[in-house]
Structures are given as structure tokens and as C-alpha cells.
Amino acid sequence: MLTTDFPTGSPCWIDLGSPDPAAAAAFYGAVFGWTFQQLGPEAGGYGFLQLDGKTVGAVGPLTEEGARSTWTTYFKTPDADATAKAVEQAGGTVRVAPFDVMDAGRMAQLTDPQGAQFAIWQAGSTTGLDVVSSDNALVWSELHTTDQEAGFGFYRTVFDWRSEKFPAPGMTYLVVSTAEGDQQATSFGGIAPIMSEGQPPSWTPYFATEQVDELVRRAQEAGGAVLMAAEDVPEVGRIAWLADPSGAPFALIKGEPRQGS
């Protein structure tokens, strides 16, 4: 289960790159009830998405030429420079070399060998998100990739993750956990095949909700699209896949995500 203890290798932050951060914040506010806390001019348009005053994510303008709007998952590391080097040695790419974010921490933006983008975070004054694993907050991170075994092998090399196979409908799903602690208790995400031909490998956040169908309705009314209609998955829960008005995918889940989706 994802917790704000944020052990090494676990998701600790998410942010959205958007062509219109204010419009994106308004969309997610309509769906989840989040508010947008705009940071100062030095942040370049970046701001926090909050629920009851606690940060559940962030949004900012797209900074890379040709980039598509997407959510980025950040994984906790005690040493961003060493992890970036390990990524290169394991066949990944360092898109943005490690740099300090004022006193908040140190980060880098990376791409795995199959093409999925992610980031790493070395905590300074900011450890990570204020809230996870509760309603309208991040509860699960899922990698869709062209090669599950190779994909997991890369992250195992970099973060020493563990995996457990789960026979999901129509595929074998890999549930991933951090290096230390009870394997089931420290699971935070999964690795699955790409959902459709032409889908780029990517990490997608799942947000917890007791009202999957209601949030799907809100998203559609706010201009979002349904990528996979709400459905019940045995031994998992009720899930749906959506895209915001700029095309960034995200998912909803009601239930226990440890066993995959």
C-alpha cells in the first residue's frame, strides 16, 4: 500500500504537464474537488493541486518541445545523481540531469528503455505528497509497456523492486513492491501490457474513489474522455480509465488495488 512514509523506490510525487495549467486545474477541480495553489513567478507557472489544503499533486506548463500532456510519476531516491547514473547504465535515458528545486529537493527526468517517462525525487524540505491512498488521492501507479519482463528488469536494477505475478483477465499482471518490508504491504503499483496498438509506454496514476461512476460523469461533463468505461474487475474492484481535455490519461479505482487492474 502506498503511504506517505515513502520508502526508497516508491512513488512520492506526481505532476501534470499541460498546455494550459489553469484549465487543467479547473478540470480536476470539477472531478475531484481539488484546488489550485499557484506558486510564485520563480516557479514558471507551476502550482500545487490540493484537497482540503493538502497537496495531492501538481501541474505546470509543458517544458519539452513536442511533449504531450501527461502525468509524471516521481520515485523516491536517497541520491538523485547516483540513480540517474544507474538509469543510464541500465539502458535508460536521462532527459533532464539532476538539479536542485530550491531547498525542496533534487530531481531528474528520465526515460526507461521501452520509452516510458518518469522522474526521481531526492527529498529536501519536501518529502512528497501530503496525502495518498485515500479518496481523491493517488493510490496506485501503473506502467503499461511493450515488454513487461524487460520493463520490470530495468526498474529492479535501478530501484531493487520486487514483483509478484497476478493472473488478471486476459493477461499476467506484475504487482511491484519496494525493496524492503512485507512484499504485499509495500506494493504500490503494477506493470501491464500496453492497452491498445499505438499507445506509448507510460506510467499512469490511479486515484481512489468510492464513486467511480459519478467521477466518470463529472469528467465527461468537464470535457474529459472515457478511455475505458467503468467496470468491475474480480478480486480488484471497480475501475475506469479517463483522459483530461488535453489528452492526459488517468484512472479511477474503488477497491483494493494491490492485486492489479
Rank of each mutant, 00 (worst) to 15 (best):
T146V: 15
V132P: 06
A168W: 04
L129M: 12
S134W: 00
L174Q: 04
A192N: 09
W161L: 12
R162C: 08
T145P: 07
F152L: 02
L129D: 13
V131F: 07
G189E: 05
G128V: 08
V158A: 00
S134M: 02
R156E: 15
T172K: 03
S133E: 12
D130W: 11
G128N: 10
A150S: 04
S163Q: 10
S134Q: 13
I191L: 01
P167W: 09
G189W: 01
A179G: 07
W161S: 11
Q184D: 14
S133W: 06
D147E: 02
E180Q: 10
G153N: 07
A192S: 11
V176M: 08
G189F: 05
Y173W: 13
V175C: 04
T146G: 14
V139K: 03
F166R: 06
L129Y: 14
H144F: 01
A150D: 07
T186G: 05
T127K: 15
L174H: 06
T157P: 00
W140E: 11
T146C: 08
D182M: 06
Q184I: 12
T172F: 01
P169G: 11
A179I: 03
N136A: 15
S163N: 03
T146M: 13
P167H: 09
H144L: 02
T127M: 15
H144D: 02
E149M: 04
D182K: 12
F188P: 01
Q148Y: 02
F154H: 04
A137M: 12
N136Y: 14
E180L: 04
E180I: 01
V176A: 09
S133K: 12
S141D: 05
R162Q: 13
A168K: 03
Q184E: 14
Q183Y: 00
D130G: 15
T172P: 06
F159Y: 10
W161P: 12
L174A: 02
